[in-house]
């Protein structure tokens, strides 16, 4: 049990409020909570990669960081325009 893993444990529980907000509340709130979860997830992946001593899995965090923005944009565009 190293410090990174403990950090990951703590971070994991910050996903709980995000989850609650994703499933209740209005459309905008849900979207914001989803974006928040994406950010938490990115940091969590960094922590876990460090905890497992697997430097090659930083790719995952990087992918998450790059793609979350696009995901948010998808929802924003479609909620705004069509749905």
């Amino acid at each position: 049990m190293n410090a990174w893993l403990m950090g990951a444990d703590v971070l994991l529980f910050t996903l709980v409020p995000c989850g609650i907000a994703v499933f209740r509340g209005n459309a905008i709130e849900r979207l914001v909570a989803l974006e928040m979860a994406g950010i938490v997830q990115t940091i969590l992946l960094v922590f876990l990669a460090e905890a497992f001593h697997r430097p090659s899995t930083y790719d995952l965090a990087l992918a998450m960081a790059l793609l979350t923005f696009g995901g948010g944009l998808v929802f924003a565009r479609f909620l705004e325009r069509w749905l």
Binding site: S56, T57, D59, L62, A63, L66, F69, G70
Partner: peptide, 25 residues
């Protein structure tokens, strides 16, 4: 912001494809 992200994304995608046999992906 979005268009600025396109370039890095392409590079990153190429990296993941090219390093498929070395790193996850």
């Amino acid at each position: 912001a979005t268009l600025g992200l396109v370039g890095p994304l392409v590079v990153f995608g190429l990296y993941i494809v090219a390093h498929g046999h070395l790193t996850p992906g």
